[in-house]
């Protein structure tokens, strides 16, 4: 478990990082290293150079800017978890973050690292997708933005160009009529989810006016279950609408088989999560 030899540069600017990304045969960006270092140790990757962006202070910080919360790519999971701004402005993220790994990993792992790794069973890509977040990325043409819903393409595959770096994520601040739900099913706390669900709903009384259901671990990327959402939008939650939503998941999800679950079991578990989270949201509205 010793990595192949590699070169290493700790860059002092985004421009320097981009130049190295363009120049190297097989560059890899390293931030918290919580996924990359094990991959290197197991010799599953052989980068020519690691580009350490840890010194770029522009990528740090969590900051409210109007109706978005901007989370720097280098914000560590532990910072997100401890942030009062996150808890207030993006309650869905506050609920999800405690499911990300364990304290030791959260102390080093970064928000941007999790987003860019694009593990289909990871929490943060799903939260960003559910909320319709926007990613700021920096490349040879300067800054541009990519909507989260267009960012995750496949297993470990994103819309980032080879010479682009994620700078920050902009997550919309919750409005009063929005409700959120989050649940994941994992063998142990902190493991990658077998299936998980991040929910954003806007309620009009007991009606679901808007509904974003983002499943993770249930497809090769985080997926918005639009058919399932349509079965509920504009309606109250009843046994019928709930069942219609669950049935629609077949069309929304592309579950894979692994050691923990086959496709059928994943679909079943997705349905269980959907019922539970919708019932939780609807139940709270009825109580009010």
């Amino acid at each position: 478990m010793k990595p192949y030899p590699f070169e290493y540069t700790r860059v002092s600017s985004l421009e320097e990082a981009v130049t190295l990304l363009q120049r190297e045969d097989e560059p890899r960006i390293i931030a918290g290293g919580q996924s990359l270092v094990p991959i290197l140790a197991m010799r599953l990757a052989a980068p020519s150079r690691l580009i350490d962006i840890g010194g770029l202070s522009a990528l740090r910080g969590i900051e409210r800017r109007g109706d978005v919360l901007r989370i720097g790519a280098l914000a560590r999971h532990a910072e997100v978890m401890a942030s009062a701004e996150v808890a207030e402005a993006v309650p869905l993220l506050a609920r999800a973050i405690s499911h990300v790994a364990h304290p030791a990993v959260r102390n080093r792992g970064t928000f941007g690292g999790s987003v860019c790794l694009a593990d289909p069973a990871a929490e943060l890509p799903a939260v960003c997708t559910a909320l319709g977040a926007t990613f700021e990325v920096f490349g040879s043409d300067g800054l541009r933005t990519i909507p989260a819903r267009e960012f995750f393409l496949d297993i470990y595959e994103t819309a980032l160009a080879p010479d682009e770096i994620l700078v920050a994520a902009q997550l919309p601040v919750a409005c009063p009529k929005e409700r959120f739900g989050f649940e994941e099913i994992a063998r142990r706390h902190g493991d990658f989810a077998i299936v998980g669900l991040a929910v954003r709903a806007r309620m009009e009384g007991t009606l679901f006016a808007e509904l974003d259901l983002c499943f993770f671990g249930a497809s090769p990327r985080p997926v918005l279950a639009q058919n399932a959402a349509r079965a509920v939008i504009g309606q109250e939650l009843t046994d019928e609408t709930q069942q219609a939503a669950v049935s629609a998941l077949t069309a929304d999800l592309d579950p894979q088989e692994d050691a923990q679950a086959d496709a059928e079991m994943r679909l079943h578990l997705a349905g269980v999560l959907l019922k539970r989270r919708l019932a939780e949201i609807a139940g709270k509205e009825r109580q009010q």
């Binding site: 197991m42 063998r187 142990r188 706390h189 902190g190 493991d191 050691a259």
Partner: peptide, 16 residues
């Protein structure tokens, strides 16, 4: 062999 790491071979953690 299909279980070659601690992510595949699950041992109980304190919270379990």
């Amino acid at each position: 062999l299909l279980t070659a790491t601690m992510a595949d071979y699950l041992v109980p953690m304190a919270s379990d």
